[in-house]
Design a binder for these strands. Structure first.
Lengths: 188, 188
DNA sequence: CTATCCACTTGACAAATATCAAGAATACAT
DNA sequence: ATGTATTCTTGATATTTGTCAAGTGGATAG
């Protein structure tokens, strides 16, 4: 199984010593199926990386639950807005299966600024990469149909489609479970 | 008319001396109607803030043009991904009317790191705010109908609806011009 | 003033997607 | 294993949105 250092390297370009200092600040925790890593309204005072398992990021609106994303191995867990601005978290993050995570506290994260000279540069690229991912996603909603979004996601994250309840995938793709079920049938 | 410093303050929390140092690095330019601030594939080596006028941010796909956003006074102009990672710009940015802009070169922007001690903190919050805006937008596509997205945008940016060709607004909302025309009629 | 060009609107129709309800499959607990 | 959730599928139908084509209206150049 790829370790924390492997995942850190996929987000950030780091030298071996930087990697070591940063990795040391993470601790390893278990998150049982059904448990929350974060809940709406709480303080987002830590950042997690999924080692194993699936975590659903979602929000309750008046009329329905909206799944924003499902994080798999290597995926990021944090309410970035809350983490940066200290505002109450918008998102719930709940384990869909028994998970193991690496976690760094906000305080430890920021203290890296004084330990790793290039840290602000690293962090900046990290946030910008998150931005870039969202930009792609917005774009997909502006010019793709539900079917095209399904295909696009399926190509990029095929493992999700075996493991995640379809209702959540549907919400994450901006369609109803029935529509997703029909698209899937049509395409196979 | 609100000045550059006013707009900077809306993005970033700055002390008066910081504000002064940063503002000094911007220069003031005109962008004629139809001219491009940035084109797809170019280097995104500067960041602009709209003082006056409208700038459309869009991209050409095989089958259609997709308008991602329209920047009005105070709005931001940069391909953030390109600006941070040095990759070729994804977006075109074209003036819809005669515009005046404040612009800072990438090099000058980064040199602020050594002039303003808190700069990395400021910059980080800036990027995170951009992220947060996109997150809201993704969310709107996951749970709102075209009609609801129209209403939502109309409440937040009513000025756009007087000034911008509807075809661009439609694309930005992820619908056809005909649909937008009908929604507008229905709602008024 | 008039011709021309856009952008916008409207209508008729088609396609995509949602809704509601029922049945089938699957997972879960006892 | 068996019964009970729950989730997924399917069908019928409604609604929303898209497409295509024609028309209207307003701006602008000559």
């Amino acid at each position: 199984m790829p370790g924390l250092e492997h995942f850190l390297k996929t987000y950030l370009e780091l030298t071996p010593p930087e990697l070591e200092v940063i990795a040391k600040r993470f601790r390893h925790i278990a998150l049982e199926k059904g448990a929350f890593f974060l809940q709406t309204g709480a303080f987002s005072d830590r950042l997690g990386i999924v080692e194993q398992g699936l975590v659903r990021i979602f929000l309750q609106t008046e009329d329905k639950e909206v799944t924003q994303w499902i994080s798999t191995a290597g995926g990021l867990l944090t309410d970035l807005t809350g983490f940066v601005f200290g505002s109450p978290a918008r998102w719930n993050m709940q384990a869909l299966s028994d998970c193991s995570l690496w976690v760094i506290e906000k305080e430890a994260y920021y203290s890296l600024e004084s330990e790793v000279p290039r840290f602000h540069h690293i962090d900046r690229r990290f946030v910008a990469r998150c931005f870039s991912t969202l930009e792609d996603r917005i774009f997909s909603h502006l010019h793709m149909s539900a079917e095209e979004r399904y295909q696009y996601m399926f190509e990029r994250q095929p493992q999700l489609f075996n493991q995640v309840p379809l209702q959540y995938l549907a919400s994450m793709l901006g369609m109803t479970p029935e529509t997703l079920s029909r698209l899937r049938k049509k395409i196979i």
